[in-house]
């Protein structure tokens, strides 16, 4: 996988899936524009004004805690979020992101390394994130090869399709 680069949009600790994608929109599952419109809308409405496609979310600990709703990862993809780097993730959100092809990286210390609007560089293959402005780097444990394979293929469905063709 190539290095991922983008503008940093920061969030704090324990950002839950109800906050990312409210339950009342759960019956919307395919409309890209409609889903993108509701990311963080109730609690962080400024995201919809200030966030830009291509942004990378840098968050504190336990990002994506709560429900298993995949729409929480889907809506961010539809919005155009390029990747998420956090101190830690809740496990279902983490797996959902990978399965949908949204790169995620756990990088202890990352939250304090960035300011809103900085540019972050993520090298998943070598397990490193870097602040372009300050030059400071942090390690993110390298993902197992098969997980990188899923991400590289653009998500689990594309990955399984590819495998089926091989078989």
């Amino acid at each position: 996988m190539e290095t991922i680069k983008g503008r940093v949009y920061k969030f704090g600790n324990d950002i839950n899936t109800d906050v990312i994608y409210p339950g009342k929109y759960l019956s919307i599952t395919t409309d890209r524009e409609e889903m993108a419109k509701h990311c963080f809308e109730a609690v962080y409405p400024e995201f919809l004004k200030d966030g830009q496609p291509g942004d990378i979310i840098v968050a504190g600990k336990n990002f994506g805690c709560g429900s298993s709703r995949e729409q929480a990862a889907t809506c961010l993809i539809y919005f155009g979020i390029r990747a998420i780097v956090a101190e830690s993730f809740a496990r279902i959100f983490y797996r959902n992101a990978i399965n949908l092809g949204l790169p995620v990286a756990v990088a202890p210390g990352v939250w304090g390394m960035f300011e809103h609007g900085d540019v972050i560089e993520i090298d998943l293959e070598n397990g490193q994130v870097k602040n372009e402005r300050t030059g400071v780097t942090a390690e993110c444990p390298k993902l197992p090869d098969f997980v990188l394979g899923i991400l590289g293929d653009g998500g689990l469905i594309a990955h399984l399709k590819k495998q089926l063709r091989k078989d």
Partner: peptide
């Protein structure tokens, strides 16, 4: 344990999960 919908599609297809 809980998983997401896409991952479940993989389970429906293969009967396995990592």
């Amino acid at each position: 344990t809980g998983i997401g919908a896409t991952e479940m599609a993989g389970v429906w297809a293969t009967g396995e999960l990592w």
